[in-house]
């Protein structure tokens, strides 16, 4: 390691927030460490303090509330994939978490860490966005709840203040009538960064017409995003294969309009369209 720092392991959430209140701007928060340790090695982060939050019991449980499920920020991917309630309630998110890095990475990496790192290609973020995810953020004596979509503002950048800590993720389960899909394209299956990743959740009404559809795409724009304009235009339509193909083109065109033509557009445009088609087939065609 090229850097040095003081290692702190707060024994409680309050203790941790107190340290952040005084030293937040010169601290790095260590949850799973899978991104942070690499930044120490490369020298891109040189904090004075490293706060190890990986043992804070207050933020490592799954809580079922009346309308929402709250996931503690430092639960690891492996713990969440093995959690029956998570697997049953959030199939797309579970599939996405199974794609993260490798088993060694999933054994330490956390959902809170994935949000804090705010990578445009984060596997877990599109499948949280289709549940209108909210992020619980705490600092000394205060809690704020922020929509995930608003928290992440640019690649690797979010609205977290130095004295704040992500403590949980609040997800709204959908009715069982919804079907979900998560897919990604990457150079290889394991240990790869997604080139395009996508989560879809949809429900048909009694006549077989689209009642609700949510599409979230990652790795194609500065931040993962919901394609609300396209989603809205699909309500009430019949999901036939011609329509699914057109929707693929529509989403791809929408994203190119949004981010402009880039060096990768020639590849990504058909890749996005293809992935939309596959995800929509997953949810609409048995």
């Amino acid at each position: 390691m090229r850097i040095n720092f003081k290692y702190l392991r707060p024994h409680s959430l309050n203790e941790c927030l107190a340290v952040l209140a005084t030293h937040g701007d010169e601290s790095a928060i260590l949850a799973g460490g899978t991104d942070l340790m690499i930044s120490f090695r490369s020298g891109s982060r040189t904090p004075r303090f490293v706060l190890d939050i990986s043992r804070l019991s207050e933020i490592r449980s799954v809580e079922q509330h009346a309308e929402v499920i709250k996931i503690g920020a430092i639960l690891t991917y492996s713990e969440l994939i093995a959690h029956p309630l998570i697997v049953k309630t959030f199939p797309a998110l579970s599939a996405a978490m199974s794609c993260v890095g490798s088993l060694q990475i999933r054994n330490v990496g956390t959902l809170g860490g994935n949000i804090a790192n705010s990578s445009p290609a984060a596997d877990s973020i599109p499948p949280m966005m289709i549940h209108d995810a909210q992020v619980m953020i705490q600092k000394v004596n205060s809690v704020r709840i922020e929509k995930l979509e608003r928290l992440i503002v640019a690649p690797y950048s979010n609205t977290l203040e130095p004295d704040e800590l992500i403590t949980g993720i609040i997800l709204k389960p959908v009715e069982t009538a919804y079907k979900q899909s998560y897919r990604r394209i990457a150079r290889r299956k394991s240990l790869s960064i997604a080139r395009v990743n996508m989560a879809v959740s949809a429900k048909l009404d009694a006549e077989g017409l689209i009642e609700d559809v949510r599409i979230s795409v990652g790795s194609v724009a500065p931040t993962p995003l919901r394609i609300k304009k396209v989603e809205d235009s699909l309500i009430g339509l019949k999901p036939e294969s011609k329509f699914i193909k057109e929707t693929g083109e529509l989403v791809a065109r929408h994203i190119v309009d949004l981010v402009g033509v880039r060096h990768s557009t020639e590849y990504k445009r058909p890749a996005i369209a293809g992935l939309v088609i596959k995800c929509l087939e997953d949810v609409f065609i048995d």
Binding site: Y7, L30, G33, M37, I38, Q104, I105, N107, V108
Partner: peptide
Amino acid sequence: KAVNGCLVLAAQ
């Protein structure tokens, strides 16, 4: 659990 020794601090 299998972990990468290079991504874990000794302090952990």
